Simulated scan of single mutants.
Amino acid sequence: MDKILEAVVMSSYPNNVKQGLVRRVIEAAKQPMDSEQCWSMLELSTKLYLLGDTKYKREIGKEVLEVYGHYHPEEFEEFFNVRFLLSLLQEGYGPLGKRSHYVLDYIQLGLQFVLESPSANSIFGLLRIEVLRKVCERPSPKQCAKISKLLIQHPQCIPVGKHQVLFCQQLIRCIRQFQCVSEGEEDIMEFLEQVNKVSGLLQRIWRTQTSVILPSLKELFTIISSTETRNDLMYLVFLVTNIFIAGAHPCLAEEQEAPSNALASVVQFVPLELMDGVIRNLTNDDSITDVQMMTAIGR
C-alpha cells in the first residue's frame, strides 16, 4: 500500500486526479493490517510530511499520520518512540536540519495520539530536556514560537523544578535578541504573533508557578541594566503602553546590539500585586550598582 501511495503522490498527474486515488488508500488504511505494513506507511507519511517539497505532499503526509494514529494506535506508539524523537530533535531527518520548524510541527502532531499511552511519560521527560536545550541554543523567533505553541498545547512537556526557572530565564534571553528583519506589513504581523506566542508561554508558566516570576524578572533586569550594549531602549513600561496599546512595533530596534523591544511583551504579564515586592527587592539588592539601575531606568 505504501508503494501505491508513494507512486500516486510523486506522479505528474494533477492534484485533483491524485486525490481520488489517495482517498482510496486512506480509507483502506482504516482497516486492520499487520505491523509491517503499518510501519511502512508511517515511514512514508513521515517522509512526505518532513521532506515533501510541496504543500500538497505535506498535507497528504499529515492526513495519513492522523489516520494511523487513530486506527492503529499500538503501531503508532511503537513508531513514535523516544529514540526516534531524540534523533529528530538532535540530528534532524535526512537532509532536514534539526532546526527546521517542521520537526516541532511533526512532534506536536504525533503527541496527540500517545498522550494516554504507556510511553507518554518517557516522551514528556525527553521533551522537557530537549526544549530546555533548544532555548539555550538561542533559536529564531519562529522556532521559539513553535516551541511555545507545543508547550502551551502540551504543558506536560514544560520543564519542572529548577529546570523550569532556567527555562524561563533562557526564554527571556531568547526574546532579548528577537529582531524583525523586514519592514513589510505581513512580516511585521507574523513577528508580533511570534513574540506574543513566546511571552504567552511565560504568562502560562507564571500563572501556575508564581515562584518562577522573581528569578525571571531578575534575568530581565540583568539584560536591561547591562552597560555593554551601545543603544538604549525606551523605558519598558512605556514600551508596553505604546507597543501593545498604541500599536508601535517591537521589531524596530535601532541595532542588533541593544536588547530587543520585544522584551516589553514580558512585562505586561507581571502580576500587579508582585510589583511592589519586585521593586523593593531590586532597590535593596547591594549587588546592583547605581550605573545598572540608571541604565535600566533609562531604557
Rank of each mutant, 00 (worst) to 15 (best):
M1D: 05
A7E: 15
A7Q: 12
S12F: 13
N15I: 15
N15A: 15
N16L: 11
K18I: 11
Q19L: 14
R23F: 09
R23T: 10
R24G: 13
R24D: 14
E27N: 07
A29F: 13
K30I: 11
P32K: 03
E36I: 13
W39C: 02
W39T: 07
S45A: 06
K47A: 08
L50M: 15
L51W: 15
L51F: 12
G52Y: 00
T54S: 00
K55H: 09
R58I: 14
E59R: 12
I60K: 07
I60R: 07
E63S: 03
E63L: 03
L65P: 00
V67C: 04
V67E: 04
E75F: 02
V82H: 10
V82R: 11
L85Q: 04
L85G: 01
L86A: 09
L88S: 06
G92L: 10
G92E: 02
Y93G: 02
G94W: 15
G94K: 13
P95A: 04
P95R: 07
L96Y: 06
G97L: 12
D105K: 02
Q108A: 06
G110H: 01
L111D: 04
Q112W: 02
F113L: 03
V114L: 05
V114T: 12
A120G: 02
S122Q: 06
F124A: 05
G125N: 13
L127I: 00
E137I: 09
R138K: 06
K146I: 05
S148Y: 05
S148T: 00
I152L: 00
Q153M: 10
P155C: 06
V160A: 13
K162H: 15
H163G: 09
Q164W: 04
V165F: 05
V165Q: 01
F167E: 00
F167Q: 00
C168R: 01
C174F: 15
R176T: 07
Q177F: 11
C180N: 05
C180P: 05
S182W: 00
E185G: 08
E185Q: 09
D187V: 03
E190R: 02
L192F: 01
Q194W: 00
V195N: 02
N196L: 13
K197W: 10
V198D: 03
S199N: 02
S199T: 05
G200M: 11
L201V: 05
L202N: 12
W206M: 04
R207P: 14
V212E: 12
P215A: 00
K218Y: 13
I224S: 00
R230M: 09
N231E: 09
D232R: 13
D232H: 10
D232N: 15
L233A: 04
M234N: 07
Y235P: 09
Y235T: 10
Y235Q: 13
L236G: 02
L236F: 04
L236V: 03
I243P: 07
I243N: 11
A246M: 11
A258W: 13
S260F: 06
N261A: 12
Q268I: 14
L274Q: 09
G277W: 03
G277T: 02
V278Y: 09
I279N: 06
R280H: 08
L282Y: 15
D286S: 12
D290A: 08
R299I: 04
